[in-house]
């Protein structure tokens, strides 16, 4: 392309985008895109008016620390949902991972990095298994990951006959309990992962292909995208995320508990849906899922501080989820 032409085009580029932004800004659309963020801020505002215990450094850090595990899960879950799939196995997988890392440390006397490596590898293998079965044999991800859920939970219970594994080294528990400066380690891990996933989803071809597959698998296939590999990769990432969450839990609780993490997958799915990721795939932003997860954790913290019983908290969470789903349905109309 000649230079003059390039100049002309880049000029056209700037003019056009400026026009476009101006023409396409609409309040209702803006609210639908950022509504979840505003809802989060509104919730913070109301709670801080109702109780002065909310807006303290300790409490805020506490919220983010508690939320960081669900946020990590929601990253992987978000990726899988964007491809049009779902992963029900993450909760059980994190329990299995907690057991493996605890067993490796307490029983087999592995070094800490090796123990963590083992549990992440198991997460990866489970994810890979899910992905390959879903992509290669075209079985519903709901079924495949339901099977994985049972398998992972079963193995976790079998390992120590359903009992917890205790006696983990202090250096290891720092992963769940420690601080760097004043920031808890799990929060740092979470922030790094959010940054990486955001980058991958926005700037890499892999990220685009995830959306393309969720949008229309056939179109993606005809465009020469290897749908099977990308799908397998998506489930693998989700599996590694779940395993990492298991490691963090084991470190925080100073034990491996085979019954932990039941229902975590539902929190992760809720976060993704709250954040505007379309359950049919192809649409939604990964940061939305992060904010969705944060909203869930702020919500339970607020309700706790105000003194609403945990039974009512479930009902409130349900109402928020349905409300968000209703709003996003309107968005798609």
């Amino acid at each position: 392309m000649s230079k003059a032409k390039k100049d002309k085009l880049s000029k056209a580029f700037t003019i056009e985008t400026a026009d476009k932004e101006k023409a396409h800004f609409s309040l209702s659309k803006h609210l639908l895109n950022f509504g979840i963020l505003y809802l989060l801020l509104l919730l913070c505002l109301i709670t801080s008016l109702l109780t002065d215990k909310f807006l303290t450094t300790t409490n805020i850090i506490n919220i983010i620390r508690q939320g960081s595990t669900v946020i990590i899960l929601s990253l992987g879950m978000g990726i899988v949902i964007i491809t049009g799939g779902i992963d029900l196995s993450v909760g059980a997988l994190s329990a299995l991972s907690a057991i493996i890392v605890s067993g490796a440390l307490a029983n087999w006397k592995f070094s800490i990095p090796l123990a963590i490596g083992c549990s992440l590898l198991v997460g990866l293998l489970f994810g890979l298994f899910n992905g390959i079965i879903v992509a290669r044999f075209r079985i519903s991800p709901m079924i495949v990951t339901l099977a994985s859920l049972n398998a992972a939970r079963g193995i976790a219970l079998l390992y120590n006959d359903g009992a917890q594994i205790v006696g983990l080294p202090d250096a290891f528990t720092q992963i769940g309990r420690g601080y760097i400066a004043f920031i808890p380690v799990p929060v740092i891990i979470m922030l790094v992962l959010v940054a990486i996933v955001y980058f991958v989803m926005t700037y890499t071809v892999f990220g685009k292909y995830l959306y393309a597959i969720g949008g229309n698998e056939e179109v993606a296939r005809l465009a020469g995208i290897s749908v099977k590999k990308i799908k397998a990769a998506a489930y693998s990432i989700c599996g590694i995320g779940a395993a990492l969450v298991g490691v963090i839990y084991a470190a925080r609780l100073n034990m491996g508990d085979p019954t932990m993490g039941s229902g975590l997958e539902l929190d992760a799915i809720s976060s993704a849906v709250l954040g505007g990721i379309n359950l049919y795939g192809g649409q939604g932003k990964i940061l939305g899922a992060v904010i969705g997860a944060l909203l869930i954790s702020v919500l339970s913290n607020s309700l706790n501080l105000i003194g609403i019983s945990s039974f009512w908290q479930l009902v409130v969470k349900a109402a928020v989820l349905v409300g968000a789903a209703l709003i996003y349905t309107r968005k798609n109309v």
């Binding site: 993606a220 465009a223 995208i225």
Partner: peptide, 29 residues
């Protein structure tokens, strides 16, 4: 028609043959 509705026109046009920058990222511009 086989376009992906939630992607932009440019992304659809280059689907499967994305242009990349030297570092391998998508070259949006």
């Amino acid at each position: 028609l086989s376009l992906l509705p939630h992607m932009t026109v440019a992304e659809n046009m280059f689907l499967g043959k994305e242009l990349r920058t030297k570092s391998g990222l998508i070259d949006k511009e």
